[in-house]
Each structure stands twice: as structure tokens, then as C-alpha cells.
């Protein structure tokens, strides 16, 4: 009973407080305190996460399960980055406190931690993001099928946006004078019409729905009507 009641009380009081803080400056400091608690919890939980990462990967290595070599690489990378970052290995000395090692800068390219960032994290992250181009192409090939009127409209819109976002848009329709009655046939004009009016209108409708959904969900949680996130054990 207490396992569910106390978390619900904490949620209700914190939730109401955050609402009140929107309207009263005097509760802003309480709000900051509540958000501070979350940061502390998240920091402590990070240790839990790191422990879990170690446990799962060590277990995989010790039982020689398929892919154990990847687990070993993960742990090696984790350990190296942790040690290099935490102890500021090879940090560039601070001009004002050259004798204090921990005052040095470790996130500059000359330091090992900065090197890891510049030459490992940046390329890896960029590569993953760049893969989106490939997935967008395969999704477009598979999903953009003119099966009905709505799909045909979607298809036409996609062509206009795709062309107008490149020099092809100007090449194809750039010759139509901007001040002529036919200017609406220019791809850049059509794109503006689609993005600024049709898309924005649709986006606003979705956003209003989402905002109301957030409000209703929050009220269900604050008043303890929805308890599904709590353990029943």
C-alpha cells in the first residue's frame, strides 16, 4: 500500500507545485528544488545504468555468447573514456593555475578526451545521422504509392517540396516572373504556400491535440486516476 501511496503523493504534490509555479513567482524556487531532486535521482540512477551495462556485457563475455567481442569493445571504450575524462588525462594546463592538474582543459583537441570527441564521437554520430538519407530513400520507394486520392495529393506535394528545395526548382520554374499572375506556378511559391499555410495549419491542429492530451494525462496522474506506471507488487 505504502509503495504506491507515497509515490502518488510525491507525484501529486510535485505536479501541482509545477502548475502553481507557472503563475506565482514565489513558488519558482520550490519548482527549482523539485527539478533539482530529479537531476540528483538521474545522476544516482546513472550509476545504476553503468552497473547494468557492466553486468550485461561481462556476462556476455564470460559466457562467450555470440557477439561477445562487441561486448568487450564496448567495455574497453567505456573504461578508457571514463578514466580519460574523469582524471583529465593529458589535460592542457590552466593558465591561471598551471600547477593544479584538475583545473586543466580536457575537452580541447590537444587533450586525449578532446581527441576522442573530435575523431571518434563526431564521425560516429555524424555517420549514424547520415544513414537517414539511405533510409529515407528506401522508405520513399516503398511507401509513396498512389493508391488513392489522398496518396496522390501527398505524392504531388512531395515532388513540389523535393524539387523546390534544390536548384531544379529555379531551373524549371524560375523563369516565371514573381509579379505575374502565373507566379503561383513557381515551385518556390508553391512550396511557401504548402509549408506556411497547409503544413502549418495541420501542425497546429496536431499540436493542440497533443497539448490537450498532455493536460488530460497529467491530470490523470496528478489525481491518481492513472496508476499504471506504478508497480502492483
Amino acid at each position: 500500500m505504502m509503495r504506491r501511496t507515497i509515490p502518488m503523493l510525491i507525484l501529486a504534490s510535485a505536479g501541482l507545485l509545477l502548475i502553481v509555479a507557472k503563475f506565482s513567482p514565489f513558488t519558482v524556487s520550490w519548482q527549482e528544488t523539485v527539478l533539482g531532486w530529479f537531476n540528483i535521482l538521474a545522476a544516482v540512477a546513472f550509476v545504476l545504468g553503468a552497473g547494468n551495462l557492466l553486468a550485461v556485457n561481462l556476462e556476455q563475455i564470460s559466457s562467450r555468447r555470440p557477439g561477445w567481442a562487441y561486448a568487450a569493445i564496448t567495455l574497453f571504450a567505456f573504461a578508457v573514456t571514463l578514466v580519460v575524462g574523469m582524471f583529465k588525462v593529458g589535460a592542457v594546463p590552466n593558465g591561471m593555475h598551471p600547477d593544479i592538474h584538475l583545473a586543466g582543459a580536457h575537452d580541447v583537441p590537444q587533450a586525449p578526451f578532446g581527441w576522442i570527441y573530435d575523431y571518434m564521437l563526431v564521425p560516429l554520430t555524424s555517420t549514424m545521422f547520415a544513414m537517414l538519407a539511405f533510409y529515407v530513400a528506401s522508405a520513399a520507394f516503398r511507401a509513396f504509392r498512389a493508391k488513392n486520392i489522398e496518396a496522390i495529393l501527398l505524392l504531388g506535394t512531395a515532388f513540389i517540396i523535393l524539387l523546390s528545395q534544390t536548384a531544379a526548382g529555379m531551373f524549371l520554374t524560375g523563369w516565371i516572373p514573381e509579379d505575374s499572375v502565373f507566379s503561383f506556378l513557381r515551385l518556390d511559391v508553391m512550396k511557401r504556400g504548402i509549408t506556411e499555410h497547409i503544413q502549418t495549419a495541420g501542425m497546429r491542429a496536431i499540436t493542440i491535440g497533443i497539448a490537450l492530451g498532455v493536460a488530460a494525462t497529467s491530470l490523470r496522474l496528478i489525481f491518481g486516476i492513472d496508476k499504471s506506471y506504478l508497480s502492483k507488487t
Binding site: A133, V136, A137, A140, F141, R142, F144, R145, A146, K147, L155, A158, F159, L162, L163, Q165, T166, A167, A168
Partner: peptide, 23 residues
């Protein structure tokens, strides 16, 4: 970067057209 973007967008248009012809 607009050069690759132009060719990639044209490829996507071609892929969509081919996908529809296949359908």
C-alpha cells in the same frame, strides 16, 4: 552541399516514380 542534395532529391523522385510503376 546543394549539389548532392539536388541529385539525391532527383533520385528520390525517380525511386517514387519507379515504385508506382511497379505497383
Amino acid at each position: 552541399r546543394m549539389g548532392p542534395q539536388l541529385v539525391a532529391h532527383l533520385l528520390m523522385i525517380a525511386l517514387i516514380v519507379l515504385g508506382n510503376i511497379a505497383m
